[in-house]
Amino acid sequence: MFKDIAFGQYYPTSSFVHNLDPRIKLLLTVLFIVTIFFIQTYFSFLVTLVFLIVVILFSRVPVLSVLKSVKGILFLVLFAAIINLFFVSTGEVIYEKVITDWWTFRITWDGVHNSIKLTLRLIFLITGASIISLTTTPMRLTDGIESLLKPLKVIKFPVHDIAIIMSIALRFIPTLLDETHKTINAQKARGAAFDTGGLIKKAKSMLPVLIPLFVSAFRRADELAFAMDARCYNATEKRTKMRKLKLGWRDLIATLFVAGYATFIFVDRYYFLGLDHVLFPGVF
C-alpha cells in the first residue's frame, strides 16, 4: 500500500507558506538560491540562518523533516568541504608538510574558511529547496511551472503539453508505486527472492515484477488516453483552469520579506565589506 511510502516530500498541513502562490514560491526560492551564492561574511550566514528559521516556523513543518533532506546530501557536503580544506593553498598557513617535491600538503586559514562557508552554503541551499517541496503539492508546483513558462509560448514552446505530461507523470507515481508493491508481494508469496544472489541474478529476479508493471502501465496509458478522448480533450485550444492561481496579500508579504533578506545580503557584501569584522572584532 502506498500509504506506507510518503509521496514526494510534501508535509500536509495548512500554514502561511503552504498557502502561498506556487509561482511566488518558485521565484522566491530561485532568488534565495542566487542570494546564497553572494554571501561572503559569517554575519550574513547568521542572518540567513535566522531567515530560514523564521520561514520554517511560518511553514509549520517540523524541523526534523527539513533536516532529513539535509541528511541526504551530507556525504556530498563533507566531500566538498574536505577537498576545499586540502586544496586551497592561499592565505596564512596553519600546517605544512612537504610530501614530494611537486606537492606540499598545506592547510591554510583560507581553506578552513572556504570549507566552512561552502558547507553552510550547501546546507542552506538544500534547506531552502526542501521548504518549497515540503509545503507545495506536486500538482500545485506543476501549475506554477506552467504559469511561469507561459511566455515561452511565443517561441512555440508547447508549455501546456509539457505541463500535462508532468501532471500525468506525477499523478501516476503513487498508482504505479502501489502496483509495484502489490506485484512484489504477489511474487514474494510465490517464493520469489529479491535480495539474494549477485547483480545479474538480482536483476533477473526483478523481471517478475517489471513485466507485469509494464503491462499495466501500458494498459493504464491506453485507458487514460481513451478517457481523455471521450471528454474531447484537446491541448491546442484555449483551456481554462480548475484551480486558478491567484496572488494575495500573503504573496506580497512573502515577497517583501525575501526581497528584504536578499537586499541585506547584497548590501553586506558590496557596501560594508566585512561587517562581521565590526561586529565580532578579532574573531575572523
Binding site: E179, K182, A186, A189, G191, P208, V215, S216
Partner: peptide
C-alpha cells in the same frame, strides 16, 4: 510459512509474466 500459505491476491492475473 510462505510456502505453506498460498496467497491469491485481488486481480491475480496482473502478476502473470
Amino acid at each position: 510459512i510462505r510456502f505453506s500459505v498460498g496467497m491469491v491476491f485481488q486481480y491475480p492475473e496482473y502478476q502473470l509474466f
